[in-house]
């Protein structure tokens, strides 16, 4: 079966024009690519466009992929660059005032929310967790694009410093220092919202 092929074989097939093989690669990486595009943009519409654009760029550039880095690293590097390009482009455009609905929209969007057994055990606790998640998402959206990218790649997606350095095109020392500044920046944003976040945490700890 085609899904049994590893990345190398799928890439070879893609280079020969096999779009089904590319479909297998999309299946394999779409979740992590979409995680990056959504965390970077904080809305489904842009995230979908950017994920699509990322995969199209991957497909067009497959011929130039020499395997010097892992395919996963390469694809996430492309997705990261697509996001940063889009965000820079957006900053140059006139500011668009979003409605409160779009600002407060959950990441689940129109999709059904799957609540894990632990989360569903206490409705109040679930509500508090939702509140804290929204806080952290909004804080994440308030830091700079470069800081957000390293936070997404390291703290949310859990990539190693080496992988992030490869994706971002910087050395490990730079990544560590950027991540350090990013965490401090995030903390600073959250400090402004401190009353809500702290009280929510306190209540959660008491509830838990």
């Amino acid at each position: 079966m085609l899904s049994a092929y590893d990345d190398g074989e799928l890439i070879s097939k893609c280079k020969q024009g096999d779009t089904d093989a590319f479909g297998q690669l999309v299946d394999k990486y779409q979740q992590r690519v979409y995680n990056i595009t959504f965390r970077m943009t904080n809305n489904h519409e842009d995230a979908l466009d950017l994920a699509q654009e990322s995969f199209l760029r991957v497909y067009r550039a497959l011929a130039s992929f020499k395997g010097e880095s892992a395919f996963s690293t390469w694809i996430f590097r492309i997705a990261s660059n697509v996001c940063l390009d889009k965000l820079r482009q957006k900053k140059r455009q006139p500011h668009i005032v979003l409605s409160m609905d779009s600002l407060m929209a959950g990441e689940e969007g129109d999709y059904p929310i799957e609540i894990s057994a632990g989360e569903a055990s206490n409705p109040e606790q679930h509500l508090l967790q939702g509140e804290m998640r929204r806080e952290i998402r909004q804080a994440l959206n308030a830091v700079s694009d470069e800081h957000r990218l390293v936070l997404v790649l390291r703290d949310i997606e859990g990539y190693s410093y080496e992988e992030i350095a490869d994706m971002v095109g910087a050395n490990i020392g730079t990544i560590k220092s950027r991540l350090n500044r990013a965490r401090l920046a995030l903390r600073e944003v959250l400090t402004v919202r401190e009353p809500l976040t702290s009280s929510a945490r306190l209540r959660e700890q008491k509830g838990g």
Partner: peptide, 8 residues
């Protein structure tokens, strides 16, 4: 994040 079904 749930991936939209129409991405692929």
């Amino acid at each position: 994040v749930p991936v939209p079904v129409d991405l692929k």
